[in-house]
Simulated assay, not measured.
Amino acid sequence: MMTVSNQPERTPSATASPAAGLTVELRPADKAALALYREDSAASCFMPAQSPEWVSAWARHSVHETLIVRLSDSEGHLMSLPLELAAQGRFRVARFIGDRHANGNFPLTDRRADDRIGSVQLRDLLDHIHDQRPDIDLLSLERQLHACDGVANPLLFWPHSESPNLSLAVDLEGGFDAALLRASGKRKRKQHRSQARKLEAAGGFERRMAKTPDEADAMLEAFFAMKAERFAQMGIQNVFAPAPVQAAFHTLFGEATASEHPKFVLHGLEVAGRLRAVTGSSLTDDRIICEFSSISDDELTEISPGRFLFFENIQEACEQGLKVYDFSVGDEYYKRLWCDLETVQFDSFVPLTVKGRAMALTRSAIAGGKRIVINDPRLWAMAKGVRKRLSALRR
């Protein structure tokens, strides 16, 4: 297993030019701001959760105030942060738009900004945010990548720490046969053939990609139902339950079907006319990222339709010439069956007020505790067991 921090060959330079001429704009994520954001994206690197499509979909449906913080200098755009503001008790927190659904984050950063943005600019950015929005106590920017397309994450200049959860992925270099060789391929092929026979006997199967808004809506509704049941069994809060979250995903994946080269895609495994497994993925130039997945809990569960669909998805990714199949954040057994790449992401908890300092310390301490529990198999098994028992008591 290869563990990486996603570091570029060089880290951000602290000797960037002085902040003279620096402009910081905090604008509501309205039509005009989103249009400028899309324009800036043409010369920038970013990850799917900071793409114009994602930001637009979430801004349209979020119950929270949404902002785009834009940093520029005399030469033009440097960096943009799409944020949502949420009240948490007596604190007001700014976080990546999409909150827990936004993973592998990387701010929209101009590819030519490496020698124009440094610690001086990032410190000045914080001062501007506080001056313009003194009601914001904390920037809580979690699950960030250290680099994107060889460009270092400018937010590394702010205080940060390792995220509790690893991101797991499959190296697709050499094609599908090579990927299988690194992951008990003979056994996987045999299991896949056996699953295909059983699924055929159960009424026939078809793997489909949503190609119209109606098909996307149907797959998402099936996914939301599957996930609700699964989370209830595990005693986990259903983060997909809120209506604005579901509406944002319907918009994001529905509108993507109109594109010749969609950046967000849904795949479903249908058996006997019913969806039994669904995955929702994002695409970059060289990778496909599984943003979410679920399976139905029914008479076919033991056949593992989810594993069958992942096999097909990974095989197709190889055929498309992609370099990585990314399972995203979270260390799960079904991911370990495939994965040979681990990526360490980082969190930034940056206080903007005195109140915010206390919250930053608390958030950092909680994240550190999670890292200890998650990285200890015995403690993690105990935690999941307690969570499940508590859920059973509440039902």
Rank of each mutant, 00 (worst) to 15 (best):
P107F: 03
S74G: 04
A317Q: 06
L199F: 15
S348W: 00
A35L: 12
L166N: 03
R378E: 14
E221R: 08
H261M: 11
R189E: 10
I236R: 08
E162R: 15
A225M: 04
F224Y: 15
K188A: 07
T109F: 12
D214H: 06
V324L: 10
G268Q: 14
T3F: 02
D110N: 15
I303S: 00
T11F: 11
Q144G: 07
F223A: 06
A272R: 02
D177P: 04
G356P: 06
P107S: 09
L168H: 09
A258E: 09
L71N: 06
A210R: 08
A317M: 10
D286H: 13
S259K: 11
I68C: 10
N153H: 04
H128W: 08
G235M: 02
L352Y: 02
V24W: 06
P377D: 09
H64D: 15
R395Y: 04
I303L: 15
A232G: 06
H101C: 07
A49G: 06
K323H: 11
Y334Q: 08
A94M: 07
C148Q: 15
R27A: 15
R230S: 09
Q246T: 05
D171K: 01
S163K: 03
I295W: 00
D326K: 04
S259A: 15
N6Y: 00
C339V: 10
V350W: 02
D217T: 08
R357N: 08
P159F: 06
R100S: 12
L22A: 13
L139D: 01
L138P: 02
K186L: 11
V386Y: 12
E332R: 09
D177M: 06
R10G: 02
A57D: 05
L283F: 15
L67A: 10
T343A: 02
R27P: 04
H250T: 10
F106S: 03
G273R: 08
D135G: 12
S391N: 13
D340G: 15
N165Q: 14
H130G: 07
N313T: 06
A113W: 00
V245A: 05
D110Y: 00
A178P: 04
S161G: 15
Q237P: 00
A102M: 03
M382D: 11
S348V: 04
Q246M: 13
V24T: 14
F157R: 02
L180N: 00
A43T: 12
L156R: 15
E332A: 13
L67P: 08
L252E: 02
A277E: 07
D285T: 11
E332W: 05
A225N: 00
L71A: 12
A42S: 10
A317Y: 01
L156M: 15
T23E: 12
A392F: 05
D217V: 03
D214P: 01
R95F: 03
K323F: 03
I236W: 05
L145I: 06
L78V: 14
E316G: 04
Q144C: 14
